[in-house]
Computed example of a mutant assay.
Amino acid sequence: MKKYLGLFLALLLMACSSDEKPAVSFYYWKTIYSLSAFEKQQLKENQVSKLYLRYFDIALKDRVAIPLMPIRFQEKVDDFTVVPVVYIKNEVMLDPEIQVAALAQRTLSMIDKINEVNRISVEEIQIDCDWTLKSREQFMAYIEALRRETTLKISATIRLHQIKYHRETGVPNVDRGVLMYYNMGRIDSDDLNSIYDAQTASKYIKSAAHYPLALDVALPIFGWGVHLRNHKVVGLIPKITDKQLQRDVKTQALGKHRFEVTEDIIAYGTYLRAGDQIKMEAVTKADLQEMVSELRKQLQVVPREIIYYDLDSINLKTYSDEKEFYKKINSGF
């Protein structure tokens, strides 16, 4: 009897855990907060209750770390739980003269000002910084300074290299991490997709099972064109699709998602010369399903939420032919 009771309890626990699917959240990465009707419809359809809003960047200007491009609100954000995100360039943490305690105070003061003006109440802030071995000490000290200055919860973005080499790069003293499961490779002229490549991901993600911090996950829904000239990267053309490129620019296909410009033109704010190539990189529905399948195998605990990067009509329309798409992707956990 005890044997069967134990089996029943185990099955019951498995059934309960299978119902705990991650919530759908989004990053909002524009300087002006204003949602289109289509974006609002997608948020409602996927039962989104939380938005991670980029509040401002911190970068060096004349050797001083200052906040740049703060968000402005053209409408209220009352329908959502807001998590302010501060993006800090690694150059800030590499500066040996940076005063992390003062920087932490300025960070929190700027967040408070934005919240006060817009009557926003928050319980969590998130720090987004791709720190390295050289900037590890400064970044960790900055997080500790934030801890001393606020009672708010703190989360931090975690890159794949920081997962695999966490003993070397360190683990920040935050409440949760967000695994950034994208931008996995070098932006180059080869045929690899720098946003997502399963083979590249597999070299890193197995280490996630041993990462000593609770993790949520960020997944990509964006794409771009890699502008190449003489097999060298000139720059990125954000938020365009194959169809857009072929409509706006005279090209000939060189293969799957690669095009050669056949006539000089200024398009998307850049000069495209005849002979230049555009390598299109994007994330398909199948890619997202594959990501979730692999993460389910490697993560010890089901994430609390999946945060999609980023909330923009251009990105959303790629997947909008399927109702409740993001809820369905999350259900793969």
Rank of each mutant, 00 (worst) to 15 (best):
A218V: 06
V283N: 01
V292E: 05
A37W: 04
K50Q: 12
A214D: 13
N173M: 12
Q162L: 04
E91M: 09
S109V: 08
P70R: 01
I88A: 04
H210D: 15
K317C: 05
I158C: 04
E263M: 03
N315L: 01
K30N: 15
Q199R: 12
L12I: 09
S18W: 06
P238V: 13
T31P: 01
S313I: 09
R147A: 04
Q277G: 05
R148A: 15
L60A: 01
I307R: 07
S17K: 10
A218K: 02
G6Y: 15
L35P: 04
T150K: 05
A141N: 05
A104S: 06
I58T: 04
M180T: 02
F80Y: 11
D312S: 09
K3Y: 14
R148Y: 09
H161I: 12
F26D: 05
D79P: 08
I111G: 00
L7T: 11
S49R: 14
K3P: 02
V234N: 08
L219Y: 00
K203N: 13
L179H: 01
E324Y: 11
Q298N: 15
K61G: 11
V302I: 05
V117G: 05
S155N: 09
A10D: 09
D310I: 04
R136V: 11
T284S: 15
K164M: 10
L295V: 00
I143S: 04
K328G: 10
I125W: 03
S25W: 06
G177C: 06
N173E: 15
I143P: 07
D188T: 08
I127L: 10
I32R: 09
K44T: 14
I98M: 07
E144D: 15
D216T: 07
F222A: 05
Y271I: 12
Y204H: 09
G185N: 04
K232F: 14
C129N: 10
V83G: 00
T81Q: 11
P22C: 06
E168T: 12
M184I: 07
I120H: 10
M110F: 10
V85Y: 05
I98E: 09
K323Q: 13
